[in-house]
């Protein structure tokens, strides 16, 4: 009612009214925009600004335009690191989400004794800081003094060295899966809890079995949660840094300084003083991650419709 009234009045003094209306809106989003521009826009803009320069030990700083981006596009080490996290994503994410989904369904099935105990104990690894978890796994993986070494010695097994060139990515995948199954399980479990009971009642009246309920009710209902968990996992894979960077001290030859894009950018800026080039790489990775996350989201929503 008031809006229509305002609209008729507004024709008389359009500029003043409209501009005041515009500023009222800004006042509401102001606090958000302030924080958003401070912690998100400003760093991104600064990184873009940095990425347009080149700073040499001999010669100083000069504006180079897109040269850093051109260089990154043809940098074999950069693409090697991108390929590595892509392989990691394709293999590790489905395994992790699959196990997390199975666990969530099991806990939700009401057929489990001590369900809350399982829920908390599977979630617990997520509460362990990644640095501590990696150090711990590093000791387990030790082929001489670690658990792997002990098992090999005790039973005469020949478990291959998890910290060798061939197995290191699997070893890191194992750590990440261990860390994040609980987190994803909790997302799925929370979504499962929101499914209305009537659906189950209807299903049982129709005579549906447990697996039929899972297939036809539970999984379709939590598709949104699965989509969100997938996007988080995709972003997490592209940002892989802590685990390999800490294991590098134990396996310096298996984990190169360009093992993941983040490690590459880190080493370029802090060992090589190539802040500008590192900023360009960070920007490219940001765009790449957005594209992949968007594709994942698209494919998820297509199933919805």
């Amino acid at each position: 009612m008031t809006t229509t009234l305002n609209a008729t009045v507004a024709t008389e003094a359009p500029t003043q009214k409209r501009s005041r209306g515009r500023w009222t809106g800004w006042a509401f989003v102001g606090p958000f925009m302030f924080v958003f521009s401070l912690v998100f826009l400003a760093p991104v803009l600064y990184a873009i600004y940095l990425s347009l320069f080149q700073d040499q030990m001999v010669g100083g700083t000069k504006f180079v335009g897109g040269a850093n981006y051109v260089q990154a596009m043809t940098d074999p080490q950069f693409w090697d690191s991108v390929r590595r996290v892509a392989v990691f994503l394709v293999v590790q994410v489905p395994i992790m989400l699959g196990v997390a989904l199975a666990v969530a369904l099991a806990i939700d099935s009401n057929r489990l004794r001590f369900a809350s105990f399982f829920r908390i104990s599977i979630f617990l690894p997520y509460a362990v800081p990644a640095v501590v978890a990696t150090l711990m796994w590093g000791f387990i993986y030790g082929p001489r003094f670690g658990l792997v070494g002990n098992l090999n010695e005790l039973f005469g097994w020949a478990i291959p060295d998890p910290l060798s060139n061939h197995w290191i990515l699997v070893a890191i995948g194992n750590i990440v899966t261990w860390e994040f199954i609980g987190y994803n399980m909790l997302i799925f479990y929370a979504a499962l809890k929101t499914i209305p009971n009537e659906l189950y009642e209807a299903a049982s009246i129709d005579g549906a079995g447990a697996f039929s309920v899972i297939r036809n009710i539970k999984i379709p209902s939590i598709r949104g949660a699965i989509g969100i968990a997938s996007i988080f996992s995709v972003i997490g894979s592209f940002q892989l840094f802590n685990e390999p960077n800490i294991l590098k001290s134990l396996a310096p030859n298996a984990i190169s300084s360009f093992f993941t894009p983040n490690m590459y950018a880190y080493n370029l800026s802090f060992a090589g003083q190539q802040f500008n080039y590192a900023a360009a790489i960070a920007m490219i990775m940001g765009v790449l991650t957005m594209i992949v996350a968007y594709i994942v989201q698209l494919s998820g929503s297509r199933k919805d419709s």
């Binding site: 060798s164 060139n165 310096p252 030859n253 298996a254 190169s256 300084s257 360009f258 080493n267 060992a271 090589g272």
Partner: peptide
């Protein structure tokens, strides 16, 4: 800092 990327591969 890049020694192990290169010579380290021979060691590995």
């Amino acid at each position: 800092s890049i020694f192990n990327d290169t010579v380290g591969q021979s060691y590995g």
